[in-house]
Design a protein around this nucleic acid. Structure first.
Lengths: 225, 225
DNA sequence: TATCCCAATCTGGTATCCCAAACCGAACCA
DNA sequence: TGGTTCGGTTTGGGATACCAGATTGGGATA
């Protein structure tokens, strides 16, 4: 793997893992020292992370993207449109991508979680459910759009204060959506998915909005509406 | 404007204008000589164009993205989902973005075309109609998605063999869609837009599929389904 | 003549170097 | 004391030198 890809992945992990605070300034020289790579691959990595929305420009200089509630809301609306379209496509498929890496695999994902599962795992599987669900429709662009959107939502979802009941409800909704898709009931799947995403969005925004002081106290830049 | 942006824009223009053939190999050194810039800004430009799908990697080395009929089909499906969602959002707005740079401006776009209009203008305004229509919904991500999709479709739309009647029909459909949005009739607008994009897609794919020998004869790499 | 092999060449990847502009702080003036 | 200016420092943008691996073209050989 090239150094550029290494730097990119490590930086992304640090940002998504909140090891670098949202809103924090980044200098190419600091990254150079931190990762022991020269500026050429670093700049390439920053350019890619910029297109992913994880870092941005602050005049001259780089900044880790802040938590932006307006952006989160818009990304979520975008993702709802794309995911619903993907699920409708999947329902229209003859076998609904039911085999080899399709719906069954996703069902396996859901069932891999139980009371013992760590928070990291819940988070990861929660992402993967939506990404995989979109992937089996066969349209690369819809799948990529969902991946990008989930990436942009990742830090916020991690910060969200979620109690066990809310988590269990989300999981139940995942199962319902999956069942509807397996049955090929496009309208029901679309409605369930839409409601699921809409509800997640509202709770996510509300949770972050309520806790924005706490977040700022942790050194995170939070841009509220 | 930085050199990187200049190189990026010029390269993009050359690719979209088919001055560099789809599928053609690009070397950083050739670009260096061609644009009299050093490899640093050139690499940055290539990285960005890669995310736009205009250039890609061919093992080691860069390649201008070929005309890929499967990709075009998928991008079009993606764009239909996003554009319909954007229009529904717009219809739900109180004033439907009707003022200052909103719907009226788009109407102006359409009316700026007549029998005297050059092919370049038709092409540009055809793109802008969809981009602007998506923009007024207020969701940056939906708007960006449409922009990206139209960019990916741009070369193919340019190559498409279109007679005047087909062109006029497309324009009439644009007007109908706009009228439905102005009236706030979300379902009608969505249905019209969906049909318009679906029809465009089918004709585009069919046109390129029929002419793929001619395109290959011009040195264009065409990947058919 | 066909084939194989090696060296010259060309490629993108990386490390550095230089530069102009922006930033920051201290010193100085009102 | 508060504002301003000015110079050093730091920044990203660009240019270039160097490297390792891939490619290729030609010449030697069977």
């Amino acid at each position: 793997m090239s150094q550029m890809q290494q730097v990119e992945q490590q930086l992304r992990d640090m940002i998504l893992g909140l090891e670098i605070a949202p809103g924090e300034r980044l200098t190419e020289r600091w990254i150079e020292a931190r990762f022991d790579a020269s500026r050429t691959p670093i700049r390439a990595a920053l350019l890619r992370l910029e297109t992913e929305g994880l870092v941005g420009r602050d005049g001259r200089g780089w900044t880790v993207a802040p938590i932006n509630l307006v952006e989160l809301e818009q990304v979520s609306v975008y993702r709802e449109a794309v995911e619903v379209a993907a699920v409708r496509l999947t329902c229209a498929l003859p076998d609904r991508g039911g085999f080899e890496g399709g719906l069954e695999a996703i069902e396996g994902l859901l069932e891999s979680c139980d009371a013992e599962t760590t928070r990291e795992e819940w988070h990861r599987v929660g992402n993967d459910f939506h990404i995989e669900l979109a992937r089996i429709c066969g349209n690369e662009f819809l799948a990529r759009a969902v991946r990008d959107a989930m990436l942009r939502l990742s830090r916020a979802r991690w910060l969200e204060v979620r109690e066990a009941p809310a988590r269990d409800r989300a999981w139940a909704e995942h199962r319902d959506i999956l069942a509807a898709v397996k049955a090929g009931e496009a309208d029901r799947a679309a409605a369930l998915l839409s409601a699921h995403i809409g509800g997640s969005r509202d709770r996510l925004i509300a949770s972050l909005h309520d806790d924005r002081r706490g977040l700022r106290a942790r050194g995170f830049a939070v841009v509220a509406g």
